[in-house]
Simulated assay, not measured.
Amino acid sequence: MTTAEDRWLIAGLGNPTRWFAGTRHNAGFLVVDRLAERHGARFRRHGLRSRVAEIEIGGRQVVLAKPQLFINLSGRPVAALLRRHGIPVDRLLVVQDDLDFPFGVARLKRGGGPAGHNGARSINAALRTRDYLRLRFGLGRPPKGTTVGSFVLAAFTPEEQQTLPTLLDRCADAVETLVTAGLGRAQSELNGAGAPRR
Rank of each mutant, 00 (worst) to 15 (best):
A120D: 08
A120C: 10
R121A: 15
R121E: 15
R121Q: 14
R121S: 12
R121G: 12
S122H: 01
S122V: 05
S122I: 06
I123N: 00
N124L: 15
N124T: 11
N124W: 12
N124F: 13
A125D: 14
A126I: 09
A126R: 12
A126Y: 11
A126D: 10
L127H: 04
R128K: 15
R128F: 11
R128M: 12
T129D: 02
R130H: 07
R130I: 01
R130T: 06
R130W: 01
R130Y: 01
D131P: 06
Y132W: 05
L133Y: 14
L133Q: 08
L133G: 10
L133T: 11
R134L: 08
R134G: 00
L135P: 05
L135Y: 06
L135T: 05
L135C: 10
R136K: 15
R136N: 10
R136I: 12
F137N: 02
F137E: 02
F137R: 08
F137A: 09
F137Q: 08
G138N: 09
L139N: 11
L139E: 10
L139C: 13
L139G: 10
G140M: 14
G140H: 13
G140Q: 12
R141V: 08
R141T: 09
R141N: 09
R141W: 07
R141C: 08
P142N: 06
P142L: 04
P142K: 03
P143N: 10
P143F: 06
K144D: 04
K144E: 08
K144A: 09
K144P: 06
K144Y: 02
G145Q: 03
G145H: 02
G145Y: 05
G145L: 06
G145R: 01
G145K: 00
G145E: 02
G145T: 06
T146G: 06
T146L: 12
T146A: 13
T147D: 01
T147F: 00
T147I: 03
T147K: 04
V148M: 06
V148D: 04
G149A: 09
G149E: 10
S150K: 07
S150A: 14
S150V: 10
F151N: 01
F151D: 00
F151I: 05
V152G: 01
L153H: 07
L153T: 07
L153C: 09
L153D: 07
A154M: 11
A154K: 10
A154E: 14
A155Y: 12
A155M: 13
A155W: 12
F156P: 06
F156G: 03
F156L: 13
P158G: 03
P158H: 01
P158T: 04
E159F: 10
E159K: 09
E159L: 13
